[in-house]
Design a protein around this nucleic acid. Structure first.
Lengths: 251, 251
DNA sequence: GTAATAGTGTCTTTAAGACACTATCGC
DNA sequence: GCGATAGTGTCTTAAAGACACTATTAC
């Protein structure tokens, strides 16, 4: 460990955010349009520099607040707000053409936000379906008529974030982070279906989630906002690990 | 994303390594003794600065080579060598008393190395049981007579690495990274037992691993190096994901 | 022979997958 | 009534857990 604090290569350190939500039965990611070069006009993940006296998680929370107005709840947080966790760090020497930038990516799972984006600064921002940002052909979904190609290595970061989310809802109760504070079993099932892109059997799903102790807590209320027979409302229970896990089909 | 490449706080970026192996039925981590302040004389994880033109994974591989002589095989690597993956990044502003250092920790899983440590530079290095470095009371195992308290936030990093390893061998074939190129079912079982700190039923374990297609490939040879009846030798198969997973007892 | 590990088989239990069926709303 | 979603029950099947039992070595 040749620690010579006076002679080290200087790096810039940023945080980038993979902010995911479920909108109209599709997994969507928050992207912002870049106002300056490089990649001017291209869509990118929100992010920014870590300040000199700022922890990485604090920087991510600050950026999240600036972009969406959301406040994260940390591990075991009980308040309303989004789930935030560190994802991975990207440090290819040439990932930013201007200088050496190491980016610590974070993953945010949020309930659906009514406006496309509130808060934040003047740049345009929007939710885009993850599928259109990632698909084969590098996301040829239509935005007006232009293909979506994320700036920098953000396509890779987004892919890693989506894969993390897909894997984690399997063995944790994290899918509830996509739901409002009170939700029905059907709404939770539609989250799984959107994130995994599969159809799940409603009867077996119901049996699984209601039969796992500590996963769901009934609030007593009901709702018919999805139509049909009134459904019980639940809150996320204290259980954070799902054992046995929810199994992704097509194995 | 206020990207102003001329005005950013300068950071030093390092890689730290959590190198794990299984020795005499115990999960052990590689630690080196610090030769200079801060934390002079204390044990720490091996690591060092990322060079100006170096990728993070390349820096980790270089440090690993310098410390152990091991060469990592990347994802899907077939050659002999250790498994290396990024673990997490630690960036508390005061984690290093001298300056702002962001450390990208990596996890290495290695077969048992015969010498305590070969190669490397002049500093002393050794394998220590993870339990003694992590246990309650912050690792009061005896080293001569001194308690082991890792420098910086390395106890947290080690804990995260051990937890990652424990979780990952559950649903992947990564436990074979702790084994020599050819190994027996019993040796693989003892790896699981050492990493998890539990006893597994040898019969059920045998049925599980030999019944999972692509997990183990018989080499044709046998060995009696563990005593008793000769055991078949296997290589790790191509399967990287274990489905259904190996279940950790005590759920 | 004993003691050790290797390997197979069998029974029980848990839980997933595939349904049929009923319940309660809006219209 | 119809069509939607909610919720329960039942049967089948996959697989884990708990063993008994046999096999082959070193000594």
């Amino acid at each position: 460990m040749p620690y010579d604090p006076s002679a080290f290569p200087p790096f810039a350190v940023t945080v980038d955010l993979v902010v995911l939500t479920v909108r109209s039965h599709a997994l969507c990611a928050l992207v912002v349009r870049r106002g300056e070069p490089p990649y001017q006009g291209r869509w990118a993940l929100p992010g920014g520099f870590v300040r000199a006296d700022e922890d990485l998680a604090a920087a991510a929370a600050r950026e999240l607040k600036e972009e969406t107005g959301l406040r994260p709840h940390g591990p075991e947080g009980k308040d309303t707000g989004a789930h935030l966790e560190q994802l991975a760090t990207y440090g290819d020497p040439y990932r930013d053409p201007r200088m050496r930038v190491v980016s610590v990516a974070h993953l945010v799972l949020s309930p659906d936000l009514p406006p496309p984006i509130a808060g934040g600064d003047a740049r345009s921002a929007r939710w885009s379906p993850a599928e259109s940002l990632l698909g084969p052909g590098e996301g040829l979904s239509r935005d007006g008529d232009q293909p979506v190609q994320l700036a920098f290595d953000h396509a890779q970061i987004l892919l890693d974030g989506v894969e993390r989310a897909r894997a984690k809802i399997e063995y944790s109760s994290l899918a509830t982070a996509f739901c409002p504070p009170e939700f029905t079993v059907g709404e939770l099932r539609r989250v799984y279906e959107a994130v995994w892109g599969v159809a799940l059997d409603p009867r077996n799903f119901h049996r699984k989630v209601t039969g796992t102790p500590g996963f769901l807590v009934p609030t007593g209320g009901t709702t018919t906002r999805q139509g049909g027979r009134p459904a019980q409302l639940f809150r996320a229970g204290g259980a954070t690990l799902l054992n046995p896990p929810m199994l992704r089909p097509e194995v």
